[in-house]
Simulated assay, not measured.
Amino acid sequence: MRFSFFKGCFIPIRQPHIEKIAYQILPELGIELESVTGFTCCPEPMGVSLPHKFTGIVFAARNLAIAEEKGNDIITLCNGCTYTLKQVNMQLKRDSELRDKVNEILAETDLQFKGSIKVKHFAKVLTEEIGLEKIRGKVEKPLKGLRVASHTGCHILSPPEIMEFDDPLNPVRLDEMIKILGAEPIDYSYKTQCCGWTLSNFGDRASANRLLGDKLRGMHDAGADSINVICPQCLAQLDTGQMMAGRTLKLDFELPALFYLQYLALTMGYSLNEVGYGSHRVKDPGFEAKIRGILA
Rank of each mutant, 00 (worst) to 15 (best):
D252G: 02
L238S: 07
I117D: 05
L211D: 01
L126A: 01
L261Y: 01
D214H: 09
G246P: 01
N170A: 13
V119M: 08
G115T: 03
A123H: 01
H17W: 09
Q237A: 09
F122Q: 10
E140T: 12
A22M: 08
N79S: 14
C81N: 08
Y190P: 04
G115E: 04
Q262D: 01
L264C: 01
L77V: 08
A149T: 06
Q233M: 15
N170P: 03
I25R: 08
K179D: 02
A206C: 02
E288Q: 07
L85Y: 07
P12A: 15
L29A: 01
D110M: 10
P159H: 07
P185E: 02
E44A: 15
Q237F: 05
G137F: 10
C81V: 06
E108H: 04
K250I: 00
A265I: 00
E274K: 11
V102D: 10
L98C: 11
M177S: 03
L77H: 10
T127A: 12
G213Y: 00
A257P: 00
I135A: 12
Y83A: 05
F202L: 13
T84A: 08
A61V: 07
S189C: 05
M46S: 15
T82W: 10
N103D: 13
I13E: 09
G203Y: 14
S150I: 00
T192G: 09
K53C: 07
K101Y: 07
Y263P: 08
D73W: 11
A265S: 04
M90V: 02
A296M: 11
S116L: 03
M1Y: 12
N72A: 12
E34A: 14
K283H: 04
I135F: 14
I117Q: 01
I180W: 03
C194I: 07
H17T: 02
L143C: 12
Y190N: 12
Q24C: 04
E133Q: 15
L261Q: 03
G56V: 08
A107D: 11
G196F: 13
V172S: 09
L132S: 06
D214S: 07
Q112T: 07
P256C: 00
R281G: 02
P45I: 14
G278I: 04
Y260V: 03
I230K: 07
S226A: 11
M243V: 00
E69I: 13
R14I: 02
A208I: 05
I186Y: 08
G196P: 13
K120C: 06
G196I: 09
H151P: 01
F54P: 05
D167V: 01
Y260C: 04
G223I: 00
V36Y: 14
G269S: 11
T198C: 13
N201S: 10
S200W: 14
P142W: 05
F202W: 15
Y270Q: 10
F59S: 10
T240L: 15
K101D: 10
A60M: 08
L199R: 12
L126P: 00
E133Y: 14
K134W: 11
N170W: 10
G246N: 03
M163K: 08
N72D: 13
I135K: 15
G56N: 11
Y23M: 03
W197G: 04
C154T: 10
A67H: 12
G203T: 12
P185N: 04
K141L: 13
C41M: 15
L64A: 12
A60K: 11
